[in-house]
Amino acid sequence: MDCAEIRNDLGAFVVGGLEPPESAEIRRHLKFCPACQEEFRKLREVKRALDVTPQPLEPPPHLKKEILNRIHSESPPVRRSRRWFALSAVAVALVAAGAVLWAILAQQATNTPVAVVKLTPTPHYSSVLNERGYWGVAKFYSSHSGNQRVELKLNNLSNSRSKESYYEMWLVSGKDRLSAGTFETTPGETDVWLNAPAESRDYRTVLIALKPKNEKYSSGGKIVLRGERR
């Protein structure tokens, strides 16, 4: 085989797709041909890059549909943006109302919860949680970024640290819902801070859902606690 024939087979050689006699012939040629060696070196570098690359696989077909369904259940970005602008306009109006009032509000924003929501067990969980001595609240604080910071104080929600499940906090308004984040509990008192997006300010229903770790993310989980922000 001459250089042209060898080079035409080099790609197949690099990925290990030739028959043993063909590979042996290429090896013999490479030993004494610097030009083909250089070509081989370049192709081998591509092969090394492929070595760290995962095999291209199609995600399961249902995934795309689930993602699109989930974004339909959330406010689209543009709507959120309009709400944010609306909230900004209110903020500007408040500032215009007077520096003193603004200072008072700012003080309240950082130190005092703007809402405290009692979280009570849903019917399915009320018996076991009441026996366990559960009580819990969600304290909402406004922050300078516009987001809401939420302190969850949950007592005796779990009596052991679960390796199989975790919790997620949802803020719900009609058919829309926004996640404030996930957390795990500790036996006794659980005190966690979550961050809810600014637009969730109008979402009055608070849900705490229990989600198995091995379950598909699409599930909203089982609603364990519920509260209404007034």
Partner: peptide, 22 residues
Amino acid sequence: SGKEPDAALSTLYDRYGRTVYG
């Protein structure tokens, strides 16, 4: 900007779904 955002996300998924999954 909210101009057919669902379709835009769907197209990005078609382009990148395999890479993210892999």
